[in-house]
Write a protein that binds this DNA or RNA. Structure first.
Length: 634
RNA sequence: GCCGAUGUAGCUCAACGGUAGAGCAAUUGAUUUGUAAUCAAUAGGUUGGGGGUUCGAUUCCCUUCAUCGGCUCCA
C-alpha cells in the first residue's frame, strides 16, 4: 500500500505506511516543520501530529498564513492582551501562549479579573477584531527591544529579554496600538478571529514557580466561526456529564464526607461491587502471570522509614507519627519497604528469581488541600502495587512482559488509546551510571521491540530510577496517568537486598516497582469517564433489571430473576407499583445494561421480553435466547 | 499551600436585612398499568461549623471546614 501526499508545490510524495503531517513537513524542510503552524489536509485543518492514512492533498502553511490552531490561539492571546491594556493601562503583560485547547495570558495586576470584567474584555476583543488590524512583524536588535519595553514599563518583557544573548535578533508583533515581544508566528490580521469566549480566570505563578509573584491568568478560546465555538462549548458540556463525580452521584457509587475528612473515600455498595470486580480480575491475572500475592500492614516504625529514606525525602507527604510504646509509627505512604522485608526474610538463590510480589496496598499521603480532585487525587488510596526482583540478565524479558501485561490489562477494560512516556535520568539521581544506562536501555528496547510509539522525557525519571509511564486517553482526549514501571536503584541498596548467584556469592538484584492501574481510585474514575458511566457488562453492579408489569407477574419475575442469578448474572427486581414506563426510565437512567420485562403474555408463553440500555426493545424471546443475547454483549 | 468562586431539604436549584420555597427522590393512600416520569396527601431545613455587626442575619463582616476552577505538586 502506498499513500500519496500531494504537496503545495504540486509535487507528490509517496509513503509506504501512514505518516504524520510533521514528518512530511520535515521531509520538505526541517525549517518549515519548525515554523509551520498548521496544515490543511484535503481542505480540513489538522494538527501537525495528525496521521495521514490515505492519499491526500496536503497544504502546509508557514507563518505568513492565517490558519493553524496554535497560531490562531496565540494571536487571540495577543488580541486579549491588547484589549486588557486598553481597558486597564496599568496592568503589566507577561506571557500568553496557546495551549491544547485555546490560550491564556498572564497579567500582573493587584486584583483578579471578575466575571464582569471578562465580559468587558471579551467585548473589546470583538471590537478590535472588527477593525481587522494586521499583525505586523518587526525584527530589531536586543538593545532596541530593551529600549522599547523599558519605555513601556513592561518589566516582565525585560526579564524575558535578559536571558537572550545580546547579539540575537529579536522580533516583535504589532496589531494596532499593541506591541508585544514575540517570536511569532501570527495570523495575518485580527479580523480572522470571529468567535471568542473567555472561559475562566486563575492565579498563576510567574514562570510557574510558587516562590514568584502570583499573576492573574485569563483562559479563553477562539474560532473562525460561531458554529465551531458552539461545538466546542457543547463538547465542554459533554465533558461535564462524563465527570466521574457527577456519575458517582447518579449511580450511587461513592461519596466523600466533611466529617470523615477531605480526600477520603466512602465506597457505596454499587461502587464497591465494581471495585471488587476490578480487584478480583486483577488478582486472577497476576496469579496467572506468576505474581505472589502478599499483605502488609498499614503502618510501620520510624526506623523502617529512616532506612527506606522516606523520612528524608518524602516526609512532607507523610502524616505525623503516632506514639505506641514510646515508639513512633507512621502510616504508610508506600508499600515498597514492606515488600522488600518480605523478600529479605529469606535468602534467595538466583534460581528463584524473578520474584514478583503483588498487593493491592492502601497508602495514605498528605496532598495539599488545593490539589484534591474527586477520585483522581485523594489522600488515602489503593495502589495495585508490585515489585519485581530479578537478575540483570532477566531485566529485558521482565520489562517486556510487564509492558505487554499492562497494555493487555488496560485493553481488557476497554481502553484503546495510550500515551507512553520514557523518563530518563534526572539531576541528583542515586545509583551507578551504568545501571541507569542498562535499565533505561532495557525500557527503550522493549518499547521499540513491541513497536510502541513513545515520547522521551529527558531527565524526567525519579531520582532512584528511570521509568515508563502509560497514560490513558479518555474519549474527550484528556490523558490520565495509570501505569508506571519504575526501576529502583535506591531501596535495594538501602535495604541491602541480595541474592546468591551461580558463583556462590551475593549479588544485588534489580528491583522494578510497578503499578498497572496506578491506583484503584484513579483507575475507577478514569474507567467511569471513559465509558461515560456505561461500563462493560462484566463490571456492572446490576446487569439485568427484571421489570414485572403488574403485581400478578411477581412470582414469574422472581423465577426469571433466580434463574438468571443461577447463571451468574447480577439481577434486581423492580417490585414497585409503578407503571412500566416509569420503571424503564429509572433503569435507563441507572445505565443498567439489560431490562427484562415480564407481563401476562410472557408468563403465559414462558418467555421474557428483553430491552437493552440505550438500544431499546429487543422483543419477546425464550429464556435461553435472552441469556444468549445478554452474554453476547459481554 | 497559593489565587478566585461556591456552600440553602437526599438530589437539582429559587428567595430575602424581618419567622425559607419548587421540582425530583422519600413515606402513605389510590391506581395494576406493555417500553424514558399515574394521581393525591404527608413528611423533610439551627440555610456547612464558630464568632461578630444589628432590635432582628440564611442574607453584611471575620474565621474555620469542605467543594469547584486554575497554579504548583502527583498514582
Amino acid at each position: 500500500m502506498a499513500i500519496q501526499v500531494k504537496l503545495p508545490d504540486g509535487s507528490v510524495k509517496s509513503y509506504d505506511k501512514p505518516v504524520k503531517v510533521m514528518e512530511v513537513a520535515m521531509g520538505i524542510s526541517p525549517r518549515l516543520a519548525d515554523a509551520a503552524i498548521c496544515a490543511e489536509l484535503n481542505g480540513k485543518l489538522v494538527d501537525m501530529d495528525h496521521t495521514i492514512q490515505t492519499d491526500s492533498d496536503l497544504i502546509l502553511h508557514t507563518f505568513k498564513t492565517d490558519t493553524g490552531k496554535e497560531v490562531y490561539w496565540h494571536s487571540t492571546a495577543h488580541l486579549m492582551a491588547q484589549a486588557v491594556k486598553q481597558l486597564y493601562p496599568d496592568v503589566k503583560v507577561t506571557i500568553g501562549p496557546a495551549i491544547e485547547s485555546g490560550f491564556y495570558y498572564d497579567f500582573d495586576r493587584d486584583k483578579p479579573f471578575t466575571d464582569e470584567e471578562l465580559v468587558l474584555i471579551e467585548n473589546r476583543m470583538k471590537e478590535l477584531s472588527a477593525q481587522d488590524q494586521p499583525y505586523t512583524r518587526t525584527e530589531l536588535s536586543k538593545a532596541e527591544a530593551v529600549d522599547i519595553f523599558k519605555t513601556q514599563g513592561e518589566d516582565y518583557k525585560l526579564e524575558i529579554l535578559e536571558v537572550i544573548p545580546d547579539t540575537d535578533t529579536i522580533s516583535t508583533y504589532r496589531q494596532g496600538d499593541f506591541l508585544d515581544l514575540c517570536r511569532g508566528p501570527h495570523i495575518a490580521s485580527t479580523g480572522k478571529i470571529k468567535a471568542i469566549k473567555l472561559l475562566k480566570t486563575s492565579g498563576a505563578y510567574w514562570r510557574g514557580d510558587e516562590k514568584n509573584k502570583m499573576l492573574q491568568r485569563i483562559y479563553g478560546i477562539s474560532f473562525p466561526s460561531n458554529k465551531e465555538l458552539n461545538e466546542y462549548l457543547a463538547f465542554l458540556e459533554e465533558a461535564k456529564n462524563r465527570d466521574h463525580r457527577k456519575l458517582a452521584k447518579e449511580l450511587d457509587l461513592f461519596s466523600m464526607n466533611d466529617e470523615v475528612g477531605a480526600g477520603l473515600v466512602l465506597w457505596h455498595p454499587n461502587g464497591a461491587m465494581i471495585r471488587h470486580l476490578i480487584e478480583a480480575y486483577w488478582k486472577e491475572e497476576h496469579l496467572r502471570k506468576g505474581y505472589k500475592l502478599v499483605y502488609t500492614p498499614h503502618m510501620g516504625r520510624s526506623k523502617l522509614w529512616e532506612t527506606s529514606g522516606h523520612l528524608g525525602f518524602y516526609s512532607e507527604n507523610m502524616y505525623s507519627p503516632m506514639q505506641i510504646d514510646e515508639q513512633d509509627y507512621y502510616i504508610k505512604p508506600m508499600n515498597c519497604p514492606f515488600h522488600i522485608h518480605i523478600y529479605n526474610a529469606n535468602h534467595h538463590s538466583y534460581r528463584e528469581l524473578p520474584i514478583k510480589l503483588a498487593e493491592l496496598g492502601t497508602v495514605y499521603r498528605y496532598e495539599r488541600s488545593g490539589v484534591l480532585h474527586g477520585l483522581m487525587r485523594v489522600r488515602g488510596f489503593t495502589q495495585d502495587d508490585a515489585h519485581i526482583i530479578c537478575t540483570p540478565e532477566q531485566m529485558d524479558e521482565e520489562v517486556e512482559k510487564l509492558i505487554v501485561f499492562s497494555l493487555d490489562m488496560l485493553k481488557y477494560f476497554g481502553f484503546e488509546k495510550f500515551q507512553i512516556y520514557l523518563s530518563t535520568r534526572p539531576e541528583g539521581s542515586v545509583g551507578e551510571a551504568e545501571n541507569w544506562d542498562a535499565a533505561t536501555e532495557s525500557l527503550r528496547h522493549s518499547l521499540e521491540k513491541l513497536d510502541l510509539e513513545y515520547q522521551v522525557d529527558e531527565g524526567g525519571g525519579a531520582f532512584y530510577g528511570p521509568k515508563i509511564d502509560i497514560k490513558i486517553k479518555d474519549a474527550l482526549g484528556r490523558a490520565w496517568q495509570c501505569t508506571t514501571i519504575q526501576f529502583d536503584f535506591n531501596l535495594p541498596e538501602r535495604f541491602n537486598m541480595e541474592y546468591i548467584g551461580a558463583d556462590n556469592t551475593a549479588h544485588r538484584p534489580y528491583m522494578i516497582h510497578r503499578a498497572v492501574l496506578g491506583s484503584v481510585e484513579r483507575f475507577f474514575a478514569t474507567l467511569l469517564e471513559y465509558h461515560a458511566g456505561n461500563l462493560p457488562l462484566w463490571l456492572c453492579p446490576t446487569q439485568v433489571m427484571v421489570i414485572p408489569i403488574t403485581d400478578s407477574q411477581l412470582d414469574y419475575a422472581r423465577k426469571v430473576s433466580d434463574k438468571l442469578q443461577l447463571l451468574g448474572l447480577r439481577t434486581e427486581i423492580d417490585t414497585r407499583g409503578e407503571k412500566i414506563g416509569y420503571k424503564i426510565r429509572d433503569a435507563e437512567m441507572k445505565k443498567i445494561p439489560f431490562m427484562c420485562v415480564i407481563g401476562k403474555n410472557e408468563e403465559a408463553e414462558e418467555k421474557v421480553t428483553l430491552r437493552q440500555h440505550k438500544k431499546g426493545d429487543l422483543g419477546a424471546m425464550s429464556f435461553d435466547e435472552a441469556v444468549k443475547a445478554i452474554r453476547n454483549q459481554a
